[in-house]
């Protein structure tokens, strides 16, 4: 079901935690919110779930307004599934009973069919009688997802769903989860602090900062066309290259870059993949750090002015710290932040 937040505000005591969040998530899409801790991501989820009452604005689910300043539909009747951080599985109930918990309104037969479906869907068959404490972290995560999906909610919310898992399991689960949610065509909003999880899951990616949603776009656009410096700094690696614009050219330490709009002073966002290693290039700089990442090297090179930029090179280009590295600009579009 479609989700829309219109200018929502939330205040706890004197602190304004949300200061006007706008967001639209189309039915069946997966949205992901990222941002520094304390930026209001979890609060946004709690407001959507009905665990908190917003102080201004409107939350609309499908064609019904579920929250506004003077009205808040209770969480227990909102038909929103929420996988809470750390799962909050009931420790005294078995896996099957945890999943069954939200199915009270179904007939006995329907209930058992649904539980069996969920167990099968999430690969939990054979574990139905276990208690949560006897499961691995990944299994607990699946049970929590199964429990939230079982009542067939109109919307699924997930708060840091992978925070307890190790890196390998995360990558595996991210892929599985996207496939599962897309298969069920359930609208989902996920909060995470990990941009790799975010890129893997999202149809729509949002960056929250200080109670506001600074950008809400496709993951590609958030990465390549960040709207604010904060977004550019948070998502992906990158360096700001000072530039002076004149006559359709940006003059930078790495040379001139064509841009009809070039004017005044600005910073250009330089991603590691905008600089390609090229031994024949006239632009050379000294390597001050390098990180071997398996498939490639991420070099940090220092320009004569002292500015350090990142350059990506294939794994077999093994250069050492102190050597000079040749590279050239290979950006296909420009991200400009004016300095006014």
């Amino acid at each position: 079901m479609r989700l829309e937040l219109r200018d929502i505000h939330f205040r706890r005591e004197a602190t304004e935690i949300l200061r006007g969040v706008d967001l639209q998530l189309e039915a069946g899409d997966i949205g992901v919110l990222v941002g520094p801790s304390g930026c209001g991501k979890t609060t946004t989820l709690r407001c959507i779930a009905g665990l908190e009452s917003i102080t201004r604005g409107e939350i609309q689910l499908g064609d019904r307004v579920v929250s506004s300043a003077d009205h808040c539909l209770g969480a227990e009747v909102r038909r929103v599934g929420y996988v809470l951080q750390d799962n909050a599985l009931f420790p005294h109930l078995s896996v099957a009973d945890n999943i069954r918990f939200g199915l009270r309104s179904l007939s006995r037969d329907d209930r058992e069919t649904r539980v069996a479906d969920m167990l099968a869907l999430l690969g939990l068959r054979g574990l139905e009688r276990r208690l949560p404490q006897d499961l691995s972290g990944g299994q607990q995560q699946r049970v929590a997802i199964a429990r939230s999906l079982a009542p067939q909610p109109d919307l699924l919310l997930m708060d840091e769903p992978f925070s307890n898992l190790d890196a390998r399991l995360r990558t595996e689960l991210v892929g599985e989860l996207r496939e599962l949610l897309k298969g069920l065509r359930i609208t989902t909003l996920v909060v995470t602090h990990d941009q790799h999880d975010a890129f893997g899951l999202a149809d729509r990616l949002g960056y929250m900062n200080d109670g506001r949603l600074e950008q809400w776009d496709t993951p590609y656009d958030v990465y390549h066309r960040p709207r604010t410096r904060a977004v550019a700094g948070f998502i992906g690696d990158g360096v700001m290259l000072p530039a002076i614009g004149k006559d359709g050219l940006w003059q930078t330490e790495l040379g001139a870059i064509e841009d009809p709009a070039a004017e005044g002073s600005a910073d250009l966002l330089l991603r590691p993949d905008d600089l390609l290693h090229d031994d024949d290039s006239p632009t050379q700089a000294r390597i001050v750090a390098r990180v071997f990442r398996g498939a490639d090297f991420l070099y940090t090179v220092q320009l004569p002015s002292g500015l350090r930029v990142l350059a990506l090179a294939p794994s077999h280009h093994d250069h050492h710290i102190g050597e000079t590295l040749g590279f050239r600009l290979a950006n296909d579009h420009l991200v400009v932040f004016r300095r006014d």
Binding site: L51, G81, A88, F90, R104, R147, P151
Partner: peptide
């Protein structure tokens, strides 16, 4: 803890 109460309320309990 609060989160068990919240989990139950999200699953339709008063």
């Amino acid at each position: 803890a609060q989160r068990y109460l919240e989990a139950a309320s999200l699953l339709g309990r008063t």
